[in-house]
């Protein structure tokens, strides 16, 4: 008798745990024989709470440590290549494109792992003010980032948004591709195994139309990053984001999925510039008035 296959239950990922949606609802992505959580507004709220709680200590980690954790993600993904390829095939990829996407994704994690302890040097400045002050500008994470993944590329698009956000010290609540959600949950499992503290990355699955306005109107979300080409969605996100002046970053799929998806400017896009002033005493220096 043939062995009965063990089927995977796809749950969502909040605060380092894998709950089912509180709504108890599910949906079946077209052509895929699994029940996927249809996340609700409340799930999103819970995820934001978890992300907020985790953010400052994540940002407080040393850049070196964040870098190693991102590299660890790549290591663990490498070990699960087969699973990701299998899921991509299930979601309709060809074998070649599935392999290419997994390779590109793992390499992209490695790429951003390398930026964690460098982007600050690239984007910070010491500003030569005319008065006797030491003045410097540096980047600081925006805080909680809501990420709406690429619909067409369930793994590379999603990974890029998350990598750029967390490399820069943000925490993330991500919405997986509606039609291709499987990889996202497996990616969550990878993150969970990779020393990424619970709550730093949170995944929801579900319908974008239901959730988008909640993402953009939530007052405790600092930034929203959208990868896609749907101008109606972008308009809606922008309009509803104004309530707390959320920073909106909308990237075309080609940008994120192509070569230009590797850029430190994607990290700085999710950072604020903070400028600090401090007096410089002039005693003992030429022209001192003491």
């Amino acid at each position: 008798m043939a062995r009965l296959e063990i089927k995977k239950t796809y749950k969502i990922y909040i605060g380092g745990k894998f709950p089912r949606t509180e709504s108890g609802r599910f949906y079946n992505p077209k052509g895929i024989d699994v029940n996927v959580c249809l996340s609700s507004r409340k799930d999103f709220r819970n995820a934001v709470v978890a992300a907020r709680a985790a953010q400052s200590s994540w940002a407080g980690r040393s850049a070196y440590n964040r870098s190693q954790i991102l590299y660890r993600i790549a290591e663990i993904m490498e070990g699960r290549r087969a699973q990701f390829i299998e899921e991509l095939l299930q979601q309709g990829s060809t074998k070649k494109s599935a392999e290419d996407e997994v390779n590109a994704t793992i390499d992209r994690w490695v790429y951003y792992a390398g930026w964690c302890d460098k982007y600050q040097q690239l984007f910070s400045s010491v500003n030569p003010v005319a008065s006797s002050h030491f003045n410097f500008s540096q980047l600081e994470p925006m805080g909680v980032v809501a990420a709406i993944a690429s619909e067409s590329s369930s793994l590379l698009g999603l990974s890029t948004l998350i990598a750029t956000a967390i490399a820069g010290g943000n925490s993330v609540v991500a919405l997986a591709s509606e039609s291709k959600p499987l990889c996202s949950i497996t990616l969550a499992e990878v993150l969970n195994d990779s020393d990424v503290p619970g709550g730093v990355v949170n995944f929801l699955t579900g319908k974008a139309d239901e959730l988008l306005s909640h993402f953009s109107s939530h007052m405790d979300v600092n930034a929203l990053v959208y990868c896609g080409n749907d101008s109606k969605k972008i308009l809606k996100l922008k309009e509803t984001s104004a309530d707390n002046l959320k920073r909106i970053r909308a990237y075309a799929e080609e940008r994120i999925l192509g070569e230009k998806g590797e850029s430190p400017y994607l990290i700085s896009d999710l950072n604020e510039v903070k400028t600090t002033w401090h007096p410089v005493e002039k005693i003992g220096a030429a022209g001192s008035s003491y």
Binding site: S132, P279, K282, I283, S289
Partner: peptide
């Protein structure tokens, strides 16, 4: 005492 603060005050 902050010397630059004193400078500002004197200015």
């Amino acid at each position: 005492v902050d010397q630059v603060g004193i400078e500002d005050r004197i200015a």
